[in-house]
């Protein structure tokens, strides 16, 4: 994805512990995201209705295993 693009998480292919942590942090399938920065680290803004959002930083090794589809 390019910087500034908006998409929806479709699936994650991560180790169980990492996947569970990300889900608990709110990064789970059907979550709408905006890519604020690509690589070194990836910065993802998770967006919910009503303007609610939060940001997480992801190492490249984690971001590579997160699949995103068009919004």
């Amino acid at each position: 994805m390019e910087q500034g693009q908006i998409g929806v998480i479709t699936r994650t292919l991560l180790q169980e512990q990492d996947a569970a942590l990300l889900r608990a942090m709110g990064l789970r399938p059907n979550t709408k995201i905006r890519v604020c920065q690509t690589g070194g680290p990836w910065i993802i803004e998770m967006r919910r209705s009503g303007g609610a959002c939060s940001r997480i930083g992801l190492a490249d090794a984690i971001a590579a295993h997160i699949h995103v589809g068009p919004f």
């Binding site: 500034g4 908006i6 905006r34 604020c36 920065q37 070194g40 680290p41 910065i43 803004e45 967006r47 919910r48 209705s49 009503g50 303007g51 609610a52 940001r55 930083g57």
Partner: peptide, 24 residues
């Protein structure tokens, strides 16, 4: 979904984006 009020807005938070870009 039931309790959230207000409209969905997709504008970027430019100041936070710029600071994040600089600091990382």
């Amino acid at each position: 979904a039931e309790v959230a009020l207000g409209d969905d807005r997709d504008e970027a938070r430019t100041i936070t984006d710029r600071l994040d870009k600089a600091f990382t």
